[in-house]
Design a protein around this nucleic acid. Structure first.
Lengths: 346, 346
DNA sequence: CACCTGTGCTCATACGTATGCGCACCGTTT
DNA sequence: AAACGGTGCGCATACGTATGAGCACAGGTG
């Protein structure tokens, strides 16, 4: 019966002793560096035999210290990864990240360290110790990313990418960005193709960068195609304005583009209350990823989350392989979902 | 405008130079060891100022090498973590693990490295490099855990726990085990309390340890309470035997205990086809976690996955804090779900 | 025989941190 | 005045790995 091995794990020095060579020889044999070619088969075999006998495995900390790599990819989310509430948001990204990390031989570190505040929001810098350093590079993920921390991270020359748009003055944060602008434009184009000429736009209350992209894309398409936008529209107040709604019911718009599913559903109900049906009387499209619901699938865009996760990993690899390169952001196209909530103008 | 800092990250030596002290003084101030008490406020301030000015953050690799801790908790699954998610086997465990890790200030490493086979199954040992070493200790998770790898891991003295029962001859693997045995017994007790005296048992085809526990618990309760078990029952063949089913319909059993939901549903259908209703004519209980379905909630047990995840983390911490202690396994009680598929004997 | 080219290694060092040991200085006690 | 205890640090080293430099030897060439 085997007995549990006690004491320290064997080091290359132990292996070297047993194989009758020097520690450096062991290192060369194991890590297979260029000079390995100069070590004959016989010696190599002795080393490997000793490795097997002692059950030697490399000490990752020491290795990481010596090289500047430890094949670890950090993932920092500013909220918990697993919990249900945010599950939908993060989940698909992680899927892609994990897949790609696995394919490229990297392990993943989930940074779960909370800030001292205990408010549940996560911080990168905690008591002077930036834990992200543990990983060769990191993917940052989350809507509430702290701009100050991003700036510092960038300033310190840490290698990372941010999923989603996040502009920080004075820093060039490499971002992987769903191309909401183009997608929003294409949705307008599609509606125009169905004969719509008078449009409405409903804003959400959030004022994050991604919504700015959508508004830009919408406004550009309206202008480019010579369509009309019923005010208050994309420049107005968030939410569904009562006066505006009456105008729409009166025919001021035949197509409405809405920033979120929640708002779209509210809109549909309030239209129904006034005897207007979607899409028969009015077409409605949504500018975010939307699951199918009982009343059908929203005409919407799809956020290619998994794809974005994979891209983020590749991007990170590229940055690690060539540290000198400029950190550029990347737009990822969003496919359109045809849906059942838009129709040709009647 | 700030310019991106180039070159190496500052070390304690750099801080020391700037603060006009030695590197060791910096280390003492920063890590706040016992001797810190002997360093006056004035010096400390100088050090912290220098830290701030240089933006020094500790190098985790070096720190991990020096101490024997790096506050990393490994999670190794033998299949991918993120796929399937919602109904996924792993998900709830991870929820608990993440929560508890966060609470205790540990980060999580997800080991995603596959074996060379590319068959999707994951290996711990990959080309002589046991990646788990990266973490202070690990939680192993998965039904198909390779026994040989577990044995080796244990032999090498690595600190880990296994979620789920997994016996390895010659090694004492610390396991966190849902107490199927007790729970199965209690289900029998509950049925007996409803007046049932003649029982049947349906096995699944799987021959993993957890099923053995269920069978033991069932058999013990049957014996203890002086009940009768209609053969082939728990010792017989897996699946629903035709002959046995006829006997049950004929009254050989008023209560049937089934290992899996899948089988229970099949049983219900085949009973219905013979004019027997659940639970009016026959009570059926399931020995695994069962979601509510259209025909009601199965009388079943609940696997406290999240709780188990949390316990696993705590267990690991205990082992890390006291390396000498014997690695003991732990049974976690499974609550019973009353359900709607059992009733008093008619 | 002097010289050169490989070959098969070893030596020495660096990476950044933590820590046991001890030195120099100062104020106090005997 | 000698002895002593406390304060405020610095010195030196260890952790395990990777790697540039170089040494000793063998064999071949002029």
């Amino acid at each position: 019966m085997t007995v549990q091995r006690r004491g320290k794990a064997p080091s290359q020095a132990d292996v070297a002793r047993l194989a009758g060579v020097s520690q450096s020889a062991v290192s060369r044999v194991i890590s297979g560096d260029a000079a390995t070619a100069r070590i004959p088969e016989e010696t190599r075999r002795r080393v490997f035999d000793a490795v097997r006998e002692l059950g030697y495995v490399a000490n990752p900390a020491a290795r990481a210290m010596r090289k500047q790599r430890n094949n670890l990819l950090g993932v920092h989310t500013f909220e918990r990864v697993f919990p249900h509430a945010r599950e939908d948001f993060y989940f698909e990204f992680l899927l892609g990240i994990e897949e790609r990390a696995e394919e490229t031989g990297f392990d993943l570190v989930l940074f779960t360290s909370t800030g001292a505040g205990g408010d549940g929001e996560r911080k990168i810098y905690r008591g002077g110790t930036n834990r992200l350093n543990l990983a060769d590079g990191s993917i940052l993920l989350g809507v509430s990313t702290d701009r100050g921390e991003l700036a510092r991270l960038w300033y310190e020359g840490y290698t990372f990418v941010h999923i989603g748009r996040r502009e920080v003055p004075g820093a060039e944060i490499p971002q992987i960005i769903p191309d909401y602008r183009t997608a929003s434009g294409r949705i307008v184009e599609r509606l125009a193709g169905l004969g719509h000429r008078r449009f409405g736009y409903v804003r959400d209350w959030l004022e994050l960068e991604p919504y700015a992209d959508r508004r830009t894309g919408y406004a550009e398409a309206i202008a480019r195609l010579g369509l009309s936008d019923a005010s208050p529209g994309y420049l107005g107040a968030p939410g569904i304005d009562e006066v505006w709604l009456e105008e729409v019911v009166g025919g001021a718009a035949t197509a409405v583009v809405v920033e979120s599913v929640r708002l779209a559903e509210a809109l549909r109900e309030r239209l129904a209350a006034r005897g207007r049906k979607v899409p028969d009387d009015i077409s409605v499209a949504v500018l975010e990823g939307a699951p199918a619901d009982l009343a059908g699938q929203w005409a919407s865009l799809e956020i290619p989350r998994k794809e974005i996760g994979r891209i983020a990993v590749d991007r990170l690899h590229a940055m690690l392989d060539d540290p000198g390169q400029r950190a550029e952001s990347l737009l990822v196209p969003c496919p359109l979902i045809a849906g059942t909530t838009i129709a040709a103008v009647s």
